[in-house]
Design a protein around this nucleic acid. Structure first.
Lengths: 231, 231
DNA sequence: GACATTAGTGACTTTTTGTTACTAATTCGC
DNA sequence: GCGAATTAGTAACAAAAAGTCACTAATGTC
């Protein structure tokens, strides 16, 4: 008979400090960028992710929405949880546990407030160690789930050209895609529908605008993919 | 100029009660099963997920490992975080926030302790609402990530036949796979290597045993898949 | 009007996947 | 011992999907 320890179910819960840390991502100058907030004077790093403790009876997503709205001026439409972090790494507010949440917002050409700034993921300033971990995980999660959920569409305005969409995919995947293949696959997916509007960017032929409008499609009955392991 | 609210970064973190809730999954009688613990007398439901509050300075995975070990007798080798849950749903210990963690263990034919029992995911007893949510998310996460991480291999002993492996994939995906296609894809993936052992199950031709031994492979340069959306 | 530039597509090639049908090695019933 | 049943493993072909190239289309620039 194997040794068994006492069951934990009887212990009382302990009190912990909890933070919700939000990674707001948006395409900026042909790169994915995160919105950071200037840290108060005296902090060890100059910049932090927007974060706060959830209020009593406030859900995690609600908290993320409130936090993102406070730095953006309006609430993003899309959130995805990145995970809970409680390694020994330092959090700017010394929270025991952080819940990381990524928010995706379309590219806009508004200027951020004086307290905030967009940083390309490839050129982040020094962040508290836990914040750096969360940003990295957020980017990895976005890349990993881009073809499982409509992430890419949340980084675009409600109507967009197919070239824009391809650009976002290339941004997320970090590699160029072939135009004809991309469009053929998109066609087959019934995820977008054309509008009757066209977008002219100056030079070149104007492009038709599409909107995200997923329709029912025959269930994908494919084999297993062994080639997607991320290890 | 858009209205801006005050930045949250200055607020103090609040104290919250936190639980780690573990979903131990294993193949059992050709179905995925979760290990549940008999609840103490007086609880509203008869069964709960194994859970506990993390100890001071204990990481979330460490806590999950300790909790799983206390019910299994030995620590599982594989964990994956399912997310943080803080909706209004009731937790057996009334934790404000739960971190759900799924642990995968190979099929074993040992009998669980009197306090624990395996339940197929399709025939779970009544659980506290938050526990039900966590189990459902855990199963969804396992299904969703099966071709991104070596989940399936963690549900098998260290050596296994290709039919076993295919069986686990079918369990996770919930649909039958074609033998020849499955093997061809696996071949191309360099994820397993043959041992020189053979497994005879009584009737039928004996099967060669393989082990999980991922080798370098040429990076997967594929197009985008629009057909994997789970919405 | 020639040309640079971006959008969009047809058609061909190559690769991958689905499927069928076979061969191989074992146990069981007789 | 021998044929049927059972499970493992594979070759070969068919179908589908993805990669590629080369073109046509519609605009602005000079």
């Amino acid at each position: 008979m194997r040794e068994r320890h006492s069951l934990p179910m009887k212990s009382a819960v302990r009190r912990t400090t909890l933070a919700v840390d939000v990674v707001v991502l948006s395409p900026r100058d042909d790169a994915l960028a995160a919105l950071l907030v200037r840290a108060p004077a005296g902090a060890r790093e100059r910049w932090t992710l927007p974060w706060d403790a959830p209020r009593p009876d406030e859900g995690l997503e609600d908290a993320a929405s409130r936090i993102a709205e406070s730095v953006l001026g309006s609430a993003p439409a899309f959130f995805e949880q990145v995970g809970a972090f409680s390694d020994g790494k330092r959090h700017p507010g010394d929270a025991d546990v952080s819940v990381g949440i990524v928010a995706l917002v379309p590219a806009r050409d508004d200027t951020p407030t004086p307290e905030t700034e967009w940083f390309p993921l490839t050129a982040l300033p020094t962040l508290a160690p836990r914040h750096r971990t969360i940003v990295e995980r957020a980017a990895a999660v976005a890349r990993q789930r881009v073809d499982q959920s409509p992430l890419a569409f949340r980084l675009l305005p409600s109507t967009f050209t197919l070239s824009d969409l391809q650009g976002v995919y290339e941004l997320l995947l970090g590699r160029p895609l072939h135009k004809a293949s991309f469009r053929r696959a998109l066609q087959a997916s019934y995820l977008v529908e054309p509008t009757d509007e066209w977008h002219s960017e100056g030079r070149g032929r104007p492009a038709q605008l599409f909107r995200f409008a997923p329709r029912k499609r025959r269930g994908a009955r494919r084999g297993v993919r062994f080639d997607l392991f991320t290890e």
